[in-house]
């Protein structure tokens, strides 16, 4: 029988959650503030959202970020699926240690180092920096997250189902697509979402690998934040938080629902 948490632990959990959420809640609240002053309440208003709709630079940055996110997340998920298959089922292939090292290192590697390294690569390859270099950078960094998520699910998948499909005459590739993939689909979807959000969120890698004409949303926000707090940033941030929160909760529910059945 599991004992419930003591009052001290309840207080700590509550305080921790307040600590995590209070600044975000205030940011959302003040995005509806009518006043120009970000810390003085001047009544409710949607004026900053309206202003956003006319901010060409901001809209442009949003569009760049969304496109980078879509492409890099798809690349990362595809490569991550292959990497997960290799790590779970490949046995001891040549170079496995180096491979898993490369897959996992970006999880904790300081972003500044990764960004610098990628930039030096693009410079020495004489690639013009811009949309595609940011996309490649993001795909590389998010690849490891995608691999970890898919790998966990694939390792728990009962392989005999796939073998049964093969005994019934499907080729290994078709058996994988018809039996295994639908079963690990929630993890693949979650991996894609994680990669997409991380890409949408990244400032450091993008700053190093981007060039003229490819300013992502975080880069735009960063340059504005450096100038000071402004209510329009609150409005953009609120929208971004809303989209991400909805996506995360949906992904979480999908995974929970699947594991219960």
């Amino acid at each position: 029988m599991r004992r419930g948490p003591s009052p001290f632990l309840v207080a700590m959990v509550a305080a921790g959650l307040v600590f995590l959420y209070a600044p975000i809640a205030l940011l959302i609240l003040y995005s509806f503030n009518a006043s120009q002053l970000v810390t003085v309440w001047g009544g409710t208003s949607l004026r900053w959202y309206a202003a956003l709709a006319h901010d060409e630079q901001m809209l442009d940055a949003v569009s760049v970020s969304l496109r980078v996110g879509l492409i890099s997340a798809s690349l990362a998920t595809g490569l991550g699926l292959l990497a997960a298959v290799a790590l779970v089922r490949g046995g001891r292939f040549r170079g496995r240690t180096a491979f898993s090292g490369m897959v996992y290192a970006p999880l904790v590697m300081p972003e500044v180092i990764l960004g610098l390294a990628l930039l030096l690569l693009f410079v020495s390859l004489k690639l013009p920096r811009g949309f595609w270099t940011v996309t490649a950078g993001h795909a590389t960094v998010t690849l490891c997250y995608a691999t970890v998520v898919i790998q966990a699910r694939l390792a728990g998948f009962d392989r005999s189902l796939e073998e049964a499909a093969q005994d019934l005459g499907l080729s290994p590739a078709r058996a994988f697509l018809a039996v295994t993939l639908p079963n690990i689909a929630p993890a693949v979807a979650a991996a894609w979402m994680l990669a997409f959000t991380l890409s949408l969120d990244d400032l450091v890698i993008a700053s190093f690998t981007s060039g003229p004409g490819a300013t992502t949303l975080p880069m735009r926000l960063y340059s504005q934040v450096r100038l000071g707090v402004n209510p329009e940033i609150n409005a953009v941030s609120t929208l971004l938080i809303g989209v991400v929160a909805a996506g995360v909760v949906a992904a979480f529910l999908i995974q929970q629902g699947k594991t219960k059945t």
Binding site: G16, L17, L20, Y21, P23, I24, L26, L27, Y30, V38, T39, L194, T197, L200, D201, L203, P218, L221, Y222, V225, V229, I233, N234, S237, L240, I241, V244, A245, V248, V249, F252
Partner: peptide, 19 residues
């Protein structure tokens, strides 16, 4: 509830503290 902030933009969460 603990995971959610991890997914929410790092930059935005730091920005929220500035105000």
């Amino acid at each position: 509830a603990v995971i959610l902030p991890f997914w929410t933009s790092f930059l935005i969460r730091i920005y929220a503290w500035i105000a």
